[in-house]
Design a protein around this nucleic acid. Sequence first.
DNA 1: TCGATAGTTCTATACTGATCGAACGATGGC
DNA 2: GCCATCGTTCGATCAGTATAGAACTATCGA
Lengths: 106, 106
Amino acid sequence: MRAFSHPGPETFLLERVLHALSDPVRLGIVRQLAREGEASCGALDGGRPKSSVSHHFRVLREAGLVWTRSDGVTHMNALRRAELDRRFPGLLAAIVDTEALSSGPC
Amino acid sequence: MRAFSHPGPETFLLERVLHALSDPVRLGIVRQLAREGEASCGALDGGRPKSSVSHHFRVLREAGLVWTRSDGVTHMNALRRAELDRRFPGLLAAIVDTEALSSGPC
DNA sequence: TCGATAGTTCTATACTGATCGAACGATGGC
DNA sequence: GCCATCGTTCGATCAGTATAGAACTATCGA
């Protein structure tokens, strides 16, 4: 189960990244990772079934958004911020920093 | 057929914007509009059937990305750049400016 | 070795969305 | 008025994907 396949930055596809971020669950995960730096899958499941959460993490990984490492029995996930910033400058910042506007109690 | 319903900036949803941009056809349209400022649907169809193109423009309109005005028998489309920049600062720039990287002949 | 824990994979289901032909609606020129 | 043009809407089809239960795998601790 160890050693996930993480795509190299040169194969990142903007369309794929945007699709991964267009799902509310995944957008929430990415934002929480942006705040907290690293977290296990369980800490980000929001009460959802494990299979659903696992699916979302796979999409995030395959888009290049998230890096997953095994730490004992848990999987720790982190944003691939540096690589994403190099590949798509300003994108992650623009998406993570609009939180107050787009999820605030209007 | 005149007078499309364009959402107000306060109802823009980041998820919806990202989903609209995650389609290659629509991403291409948005990038071309960013370069050329305003264009008719026909000028952006890329040889696709009219019904398909119309569908994509509808998605772009409903996400708040594009403003469509009637000019005689044609429809002129433009990016709602100012409103988008106010609502999601830096987002459009990040997406439009990665063109060379993501569609270049690697 | 046994059980508990954390996540993945498998499978099925239901929903969403992309595509496109055909019919329709609006506008302008003759 | 009539026709051509531009684009929308309708309807059908097909692919992709979100969801979730169940079985499975890997790791750790007792």
